[in-house]
């Protein structure tokens, strides 16, 4: 089966990723369009191990906890120069994976229990966590955002949950734009600017990329209205929607650096919008 092998090579946002195991690995369908042969050394190597490790993490090593009142997502531990992760199943709250990441963030050991002799090392949310730490090895960030590409401009839309990212995607899709993704994106620095890439989701979608031409921080409004943000305000407003684990000063410095660069090179707007085609004309007229 295409989605069950002992080794896989993936290309996500131009990062070369290799997974390998002595046990059969199963990838979720969303990863399959991102399969790609890697010629050179991978950027990220993921060693997938069946069964649980003999070591355990100490509560005193805990540095970060992603949870809400009802659910645990993951916990991060700092062990010397490495990071340890305990990932919880989103339905049962039981441990789903235990992982170790080396100090260079380019080698993972992912432990998980096999079911019928098959392991799923990237099962959500492990996959996006690996992608997040992958972005820290380069000038890249992962965002909660949607992006529409009209063949010339890549317009990124970000905002709080319910702000209208998916609605905005539908509106631009109807206007003929390609939707890079409507929920999660990786922005990566290029020689000339920044590109926006999609990432594997729970559904199948081809890898896509667009140049980042503008960032819109959106909210619903009775009328279309726009305000350009500059300086520190632009940086903080955009950075608030990136996926981040702020327990380490170096992570924050790196994020602040890249968002300052993005905000200096790409216009950032506060956009109140009416959810129909009028906003497409409004944005294009404002850009002109």
């Amino acid at each position: 089966m295409e989605n069950q092998q002992k080794a896989f090579s993936l290309s996500i946002a131009d990062f070369a990723i290799q997974l390998h195991s002595e046990t059969l690995i199963e990838l979720e369908d969303g990863y399959l369009p991102f399969l790609k042969n890697i010629v050179n050394k991978p950027d990220i190597d993921i060693e997938c191990i069946a069964g649980w490790p003999e070591f355990s993490f100490d509560e005193t090593q805990k540095v970060f906890e992603a949870k809400n009142e009802t659910q645990k997502f993951y916990t991060i531990y700092s062990i010397n120069s490495e990071l340890g992760f305990v990932i919880y199943n989103q339905q049962t709250n039981e441990i789903q994976q235990i992982a170790l990441l080396n100090e260079h963030f380019n080698h993972w050991k992912v432990y998980s229990e096999p079911i019928d002799n098959i392991i799923m090392p990237l099962k959500y949310p492990m996959g996006p966590i690996i992608m997040h730490y992958m972005t820290l090895t380069s000038d890249a960030v992962m965002m909660h955002a949607s992006c529409a590409f009209d063949g010339e401009k890549g317009r990124m839309f970000s905002g709080f949950s319910g702000a209208g990212k998916s609605t905005m995607s539908m509106i631009w899709s109807e206007a003929g734009s390609q939707i890079i993704n409507d929920d999660r994106l990786i922005i990566r620095k290029t020689e000339t600017g920044f590109n926006v890439h999609n990432t594997p989701m729970y559904y199948k979608d081809m890898p896509k990329v667009a140049p980042l031409s503008a960032v819109y921080l959106i909210s619903h409004s009775p009328e279309n209205k726009i305000k350009k943000l500059v300086g520190a305000m632009a940086v903080t407003r955009v950075m608030a929607f990136c996926i981040q684990n702020n327990f380490d000063k170096q992570f924050i410095q790196k994020r602040l650096g890249i968002f300052t660069e993005i905000s200096m090179q790409v216009p950032v707007y506060d956009l109140g919008f009416v959810p129909n085609q009028s906003v497409v004309h409004f944005i294009k007229a404002h850009e002109a």
Binding site: F64, E65, K67, V235, D248, K249, L256, T260
Partner: peptide, 19 residues
């Protein structure tokens, strides 16, 4: 963690909590 942007300063708290 602080970073200067023009004449302004951005400060970001270290946190151990996703919220």
């Amino acid at each position: 963690v602080a970073r200067e942007v023009g004449s302004e300063l951005i400060i970001v708290p270290l946190t151990g909590n996703v919220a």
